[in-house]
């Protein structure tokens, strides 16, 4: 393969999934700036390992790298579940003094959903993102996360149940 072909093949493999990669990193790290750094690092890794990529499911392959890079990044920079992420929470918490109905209309319900997803424990959050947002099937999620399909199913069920719980209050008030 010529360098041009290599480049083209690499671009074809990863570029269609860049938004998915960014979304996944964004929801694992919970911070946009971190997500950008993580995806950059993941892209460099992907390029490095690209010669070993045998074709097939490029999205799952690339998201696996993004997922692993996100975790390495979290370990290096902060402990994932101790971190309270106060910066984002402050920014996303609706003004509690204002009229709740008005807040809803201004799109605060969206913020509440985002907050609820952000508050899910990491192991649930990542499978919920991969399934509900990225539309990966169980087998793909198992490959990306590196756990058996049964574990994917139980984490997904628990993640969803937790979200239902935290959003139930919101829905009933709508």
């Amino acid at each position: 393969m010529s360098p041009q072909d290599d480049h083209r093949a690499f671009q074809d493999a990863v570029l269609p999934h860049l938004d998915a990669a960014y979304t996944l990193a964004r929801w694992i790290t919970r911070r946009p700036q971190d997500a950008e750094d993580v995806v950059q690092e993941a892209l460099v890794r992907a390029l490095k390992y690209f010669s070993g990529y045998r074709g097939g499911n490029a999205r799952a392959w690339f998201l696996t790298i993004v997922r692993n890079t996100s975790f390495t990044w979290l370990q290096r920079h902060r402990s994932p579940e101790i971190q309270t992420d106060s910066e984002e929470r402050m920014a996303e918490r609706p003004d509690e003094n204002s009229n709740p109905e008005a807040v809803m209309l201004q799109g605060a319900s969206r913020q509440k959903v985002r907050l609820a997803v952000g508050e899910l424990p990491l192991e649930f959050r990542e499978v919920v993102i991969l399934r509900e947002l990225e539309g990966l099937d169980y087998k793909e999620i198992a490959a990306v996360v590196g756990v058996p399909i049964g574990t994917v199913m139980s984490r997904l069920a628990r993640g969803r149940a937790r979200l239902q719980e935290s959003l139930g209050e919101m829905r009933s008030s709508l």
Binding site: D19, Y22, T23, A35, V113, V117, L163
Partner: peptide, 29 residues
């Protein structure tokens, strides 16, 4: 309902343009 709520909340994030450009140039010979 949950699926609809999550989609309505638009949790999807587009990669920043800067990142996309960088990605497009990566590995360019």
């Amino acid at each position: 309902g949950l699926n609809l709520t999550l989609h309505a909340a638009r949790l999807h994030e587009a990669a920043p343009e800067r990142l996309r450009r960088w990605a497009e140039s990566l590995g360019e010979p």
